[in-house]
Design a protein around this nucleic acid. Structure first.
Lengths: 240, 240
DNA sequence: GTTTTGCATATTGTTGACAATCTGCAAACC
DNA sequence: GGTTTGCAGATTGTCAACAATATGCAAAAC
């Protein structure tokens, strides 16, 4: 990538990273990061040669990363046409919210069983910051706290398979939420109340209540999203 | 792969498949099929060159397929060492069962809302065959009916995201179940009774009951697995 | 006898070249 | 004028060669 004739090129650090990860994996992680961070427009075409050049590798590893990202649901691959950042429609987001609700319900149940006291304290700290933010109504800061809150609970569930599945679903949802540019702040107080109730249930080791509260919290979030978009939720009726 | 000088090489059929799928995708699907079918031993090393030769393609597409299969949780990739058919430990299987229970609960709920009368009839047909099998105690045939039963319900939920996630989890579980070679048949009657109850709840459009029954059914399946293995389920206690 | 070192082999990681396909535009045709 | 046909350029799909790494074995060292 660059001549090795430099005082101390990242050296030990870089060499360690290169030892563990192939260029494909590096490309995979970097592209994943950029997509989630929103550095590519939704539906944007990702040019193989261009990205290979930008990452300083050849097209092979980039192609391998693309296939992996396709499985992760972050890009869409069309034969002979290219790969595109996945676009999530409102209908798809609704479906994914239902998957998330199922997972979060179980996460609440498991967290109530396995969470440690230190983690409960951390949850309380996050909620405290959320309450403080209610006054300022800063959507960006609240969003980050919300992500941290739910990820902490997901880790507290002590279930690696659950954590992997949860994060994949969250990544897909972020792909959509990125499109609803600036999210409304009017619902923050309600959401915060729900978070408070969840922490109490988990801290009380009440698995049934934690599961129900988490499930409902996600489904309410979905409804709140529709409120903001001023559209009724889809699939409320029965089809054949 | 072979000289084109043959009367009618698959022609239209093959050309159509080749038009839609790249060799990477073909390799991905074929390897996925073989892994799920159990044609590779658990933990077996998959040699790039060997498989490329067997599939009649070069190593490139095979490598791309490997990375995708890694994301799908079917193989494990170790840098500079190779890819191996993923081995699922009992502890991992326990975790995955909890993910599955969460998803199946939601599937029961959604299926009760959206399933069609024709599908209810199909479910009843499957259960009928299961009841008939109770007498013969053929584990293999029962296993296939069970897969069909749950997949039909998953499709009846009318949620593509849910279906994708459900099938991925099932594939991972099959990796484990394949190891518990011949499964005990003693629990078939109990499992069948649960299936009957589920169909009734779904047919009655009772979403709450369908959700609970499906969730419990999966968790009971997990317990039955442990019974057969004569080991207590893990993670019954609380860790820090 | 045990451990270590060094090589030979096999396998994976990466690359650049070539083939196949798509896209856009302009000329020809009706 | 509108449609079709046929390039030219760009992009993707595939391959085979080369580089880097791991593995196993034999010889040397202690």
């Amino acid at each position: 990538m660059q001549p090795p004739s430099q005082k101390h090129p990242p050296a030990k650090e870089t060499i360690g990273i290169l030892r563990e990860n192939s260029l494909s994996m590096l490309a995979h992680h970097e592209l994943k990061r950029r997509i989630i961070a929103g550095e590519f427009a939704a539906g944007a075409k990702l040019n193989e040669a261009e990205i290979a050049l930008a990452l300083g590798v050849s097209r092979g590893p980039v192609r391998e990363a693309f296939l992996a990202l396709d499985q992760a649901g972050l890009v869409r691959v069309e034969k002979n046409r290219g790969v595109f950042v996945r676009e999530i429609s409102l209908e798809e987001a609704d479906e994914i919210y239902e998957v998330r609700a199922a997972l979060e319900g179980m996460i609440g149940r498991l967290a109530a069983l396995h969470i440690g006291d230190d983690e409960i304290a951390q949850l309380r700290g996050i909620v405290k910051k959320m309450v403080a933010l209610d006054k300022t109504r800063k959507a960006g800061a609240y969003f980050l706290l919300n992500v941290e809150f739910h990820d902490l609970l997901a880790r507290a569930a002590r279930n690696k398979a659950m954590l992997v599945n949860y994060r994949r679903v969250i990544n897909e949802l972020d792909l959509y939420r990125r499109e609803t540019i600036t999210r409304s702040t009017e619902n923050i107080p309600i959401s915060t109340l729900e978070h408070v109730a969840i922490v109490e249930a988990v801290a009380a080791r009440d698995e049934k209540r934690a599961a129900t509260l988490m499930f409902d919290h996600v489904m309410h979030s979905r409804e709140r999203l529709h409120c903001v978009l001023q559209k009724p939720p889809v699939r409320a009726k029965r089809d054949s």
